[in-house]
Every structure is written in C-alpha cells, then in structure tokens.
C-alpha cells in the first residue's frame, strides 16, 4: 500500500510546512502514490493518485491538481462537403498541445482564479495548446475548442470539479487535518510517456503554494521489447511477423492435413 505510505510520509512532513506563512508560491507538500506505472500486455489504463496537504489550519483555500502528458504537435481538420462526400480539409496545425490533460479542482475554476491566472498557469487544455501560424480558415477559437472536444471524447482531456461528500464521490477528497487526495484515471490510449503533476493551492483568487511532481509510464516486459523492435529494428520486426505468418500457416496446414 504505497498510497498509505505516502500518506504517512506527508503527515510526518506536514507540521514543518504548516509553520510557514502563506507566502506566494511556497512549495505545497504533495506526493504521488506511484512514481512509475508499468504497461504490460494486460494494460487497461491506470490511475495516478496525488496526495497533498493544505497547511491552513481552518482548511481555507481551493486545490487544483493538473496532470498532463507531454506536449506534441497536432493537426485538426475540418470536414467539408465535396460532391456529396464529407472530405477532410482546412488543416490547422498546433505547434504543441498536451497529449493528456486532466484538471481537478475543488470548485469551478472560474470561481477560484481570474482568467489571467488560468492562462498563466495553463490550468485548462485550451490555454496550453499553441497554434502554429495564423489560421487562414475560419475561427482559431473554433479549432481550439474542437481540439479539446475531440480529445475529451477520447478521455484524454478531463475536467473534474468538486470534492467528495458523504453522498457523492469526486476526484478530490479532503480528509480532516488538511490532507487531500486527487485521483485521475488514465485510459489505455493515453500516451506512454513522462507525466507532470502540478498541485496548486489558491486562496482569495491568488496562488498560495504549488508543487510539481512527475510520474513515468513505461512499457515493461514483452510490450517493451515489441515497441523497441518496432521502432529501432523495424525491418527485423517486419521479418519476424513474416516468419510468424509462415510458422502459423505451416502448422495449420500440417495439423489439419493429419486429421
């Protein structure tokens, strides 16, 4: 139970931080329950659990946790009707957009921070996606919204607002004494890469403290070997599949002839 261990560590470490005044951008005591996640052949997605501690004695302030995958270029196209067929056209290139982005907050983001800070700290995926050039076709905002919508449909962009109450489970759970926990679910199609976990404590529409953590998702065992081969020794990888095809075809022919 690494989660429990992280929790204990936090409680031990907490009093020291609790003494500090709420200076801007002081480190927020936090930890992830898993430093690395392994992807094997039974991988069906995973989850990242973040623990943190709000040093305020009366528990004031709002917590925002952002889990994001690496930034990568993306192209969004718009379908147009050409001779009755819907054809992809008007490509717009984003120089970088987060491949995964989950935002969890105790209240609605616009109640916690002003829009300028949402942009500054990149608290929503649209704020983090950077357009390559000027958009020649239509509205850049529409493309930005489409990017978020498409990724949201794939569960790659998620937003979870609210705190767990006795009647309703939420992404963020607060425990007595200032401890909190945030859980985000990564779908199987989320990129296998290095993830960044940012925890923020806001009060009176200002940042009180924050912390940055990392979680590594790595392939292990046969998945790792297959991926290695497919990228670094692709010709050999292809030959291997041909060999496999011949072996399967041969054994089937022999097996069924004898029956």
């Amino acid at each position: 139970m690494r989660g429990a261990l992280a929790l204990v560590l936090l409680l031990v470490a907490a009093p020291a931080d609790a003494q500090q005044p709420s200076a801007v951008a002081a480190p927020l005591p936090s930890a992830v329950a898993e430093d690395s996640i392994s992807v094997g052949s039974d991988y069906r997605g995973s989850s990242i659990t973040v623990f943190g501690f709000n040093p305020d004695r009366r528990g004031r302030g709002d917590i925002v946790v952002v889990v994001r995958g690496p930034d990568e270029p993306a192209v969004v196209m718009r379908k147009r009707r050409v001779f009755g067929l819907w054809v992809n056209g008007n490509p717009v290139r984003f120089v970088e957009a987060p491949t995964f982005f989950a935002m969890m907050s105790t209240r609605r983001l616009d109640r916690i921070v002003p829009p300028a800070l949402i942009r500054q700290y990149q608290l929503d995926p649209a704020a983090s996606a950077r357009l390559g050039s000027t958009v020649r076709y239509g509205d850049p905002a529409a493309y930005r919204a489409a990017l978020v919508r498409l990724r949201r449909a794939q569960l790659l962009y998620q937003e979870h607002v609210g705190v767990t109450t006795p009647t309703r489970a939420a992404a963020i759970t607060r425990y007595p004494g200032g401890l909190f926990r945030a859980v985000v679910r990564l779908p199987a199609n989320a990129p296998i890469d290095r993830y960044r976990v940012d925890t923020y404590l806001f009060r009176d529409r200002r940042l009180v403290s924050s912390a940055r953590l990392e979680v590594n998702i790595t392939r292990v065992g046969i998945e790792q070997q297959i991926h290695e081969l497919a990228t670094n020794a692709s010709a050999f990888y292809g030959l291997m599949i041909v060999m496999l095809a011949i072996a399967v075809g041969w054994s089937a022919a022999v097996l069924f002839r004898r029956n």
């Binding site: 718009r78 290139r93 489409a146 919508r149 498409l150």
Partner: peptide, 12 residues
C-alpha cells in the same frame, strides 16, 4: 455521405 456529428477531425 451523412453529415457528421463532429465536423472537426484529427489529421496528419
């Protein structure tokens, strides 16, 4: 042929 529900797609 039918109008798509989502007119934007990922490309490239």
């Amino acid at each position: 042929v039918i109008p798509p529900q989502e007119t934007y797609v990922f490309g490239g």
